[in-house]
Amino acid sequence: MNWITLAQEVIEGKILNDEEAMAILQADDDELLPLMQGAFTIRKHYYGKKVKLNMIMNAKSGYCPENCGYCSQSSISTAPIEKYPFITKEEILAGAKQAFENKIGTFCIVASGRGPTRKDVNVVSEAVKEIKDKYGLKVCACLGLLKDEQAEQLKESGVDRYNHNLNTSSRHHDYITTSHTYEDRVNTVEIAKKHGLSPCSGAIIGMKETKEDVIDIARALHALDADSIPVNFLNAIDGTKLEGTKELNPRYCLKVLALFRYINPTKEIRIAGGREINLGSLQPLGLYAANSIFVGDYLTTAGQEENQDYTMLRDLGFEIELAEKQAALL
């Protein structure tokens, strides 16, 4: 397979067939650099050498009734995590200030649970109004299954984006969780879109899915027209259903990122949770396919030191992309 030729065809509008998609995931490791060059050809066409930075604020930890097998906050997890109720507006604003000072363009307010209460949405809405005024950040909310009136309120307050990951393929979904359906997740993304929130939805790779499942989730996110696609790599936390699962290696993770770029050429592809332990020393290569990363800690697991991420971007010769108003304020 000539990966550069295939990349040019994708830029011209080609949709990968199943054979071509599988060829990416099954590519010999000796083809890895040409494959990543092909992915970079697409990435550079649409995004140049700019990188979007994201930071998570864990607004509520634990106490979740859902039984997701990957999550340390789920009802079936015995992981020893910190648990606390929904934080205050002031705490959210303090996180936004930190994001602004660290040149993070997108501030992500994330909360555990099946879905937000009216009070939760009110706290987020009030905080976002001040975040927009003071810091000009792009704000993404991730609060669980969403109702129409909640989506409308979040949009009116200034929330730019709503995240709700599909996580895996429709046929593999019931292995991961049974307390909500795949269709519930799709519906939440559609509600966000209906009310003018930019849809953010992604996947978790390494949950005992097949390569066909990986292709299916990449295609499903294309069909959903998600603007931003976080690609997580399983960090198998002790005390969760998937404890001890270790199916990934750095080279396969890079092939997955390339696949998502070839199938979703125009979209923001973000390397998300688990990149440090699964990509390891090959993390920089991931940005030849992806154009966005999380900086700092995740929900209940630690990321790498922020200065390492900034050093990595500088060494790659990439440029941090700021939110428009944020850039004017800095």
Results as ranks from 00 to 15, higher is better:
Asp315Val: 04
Asp216Cys: 05
His195Tyr: 15
Ile293Phe: 10
Gln73Glu: 12
Asp309Gln: 09
Leu248Gly: 15
Ala203Val: 06
Thr311Gln: 07
Gly206Cys: 08
Leu322Glu: 04
Ser61Tyr: 02
Asp216Thr: 06
Asp29Val: 13
Asn307Met: 14
Tyr310Ile: 02
Glu20Met: 05
Ile92Leu: 14
Glu324Pro: 13
Gly280Asp: 14
Gln26Met: 09
Ala327Gly: 07
Met36Gly: 06
Gly296Lys: 03
Ser61Leu: 03
Gly62Glu: 03
Ile269Val: 13
Glu31Lys: 03
Ala323Leu: 03
Lys325Gly: 10
Ser281Asp: 15
Ser170Ile: 10
Ala258Phe: 02
Phe107Val: 11
Pro284Gly: 06
Arg118Thr: 15
Asp227Ile: 01
Ala111Ile: 04
Arg275Thr: 04
Asp238Gly: 06
Ile293Lys: 06
Gln150Ser: 00
Thr266Ser: 11
Ser179Met: 01
Asn54Val: 07
Ile229Phe: 08
Leu143Asn: 03
Leu137Ile: 02
Lys255Pro: 12
Asp174Gln: 14
Ala27Pro: 09
Gly303Val: 04
Gly144Trp: 02
Glu209Thr: 03
Ile92Asn: 03
Tyr162Cys: 04
Thr245Ala: 05
Gly303Phe: 01
Ala290Pro: 04
Asn187Cys: 04
Ile56Arg: 06
Lys147Pro: 07
Gly48Tyr: 05
Lys241Val: 15
His222Tyr: 14
Lys147Leu: 08
Tyr46Ser: 12
Leu285Asn: 02
Ile204Leu: 05
Gly196Ile: 07
Tyr47Ser: 15
Tyr46His: 12
Cys140Thr: 07
Asn278Met: 04
Gly206Thr: 06
Val159His: 09
Cys68Ile: 11
Gly280Arg: 06
Gln150His: 04
Gly69Arg: 00
Met57Asn: 03
Thr188Val: 01
Tyr252Met: 06
Glu212Gln: 11
Ile24Cys: 13
Ala23Pro: 01
Leu32Asn: 05
Gly317Gln: 08
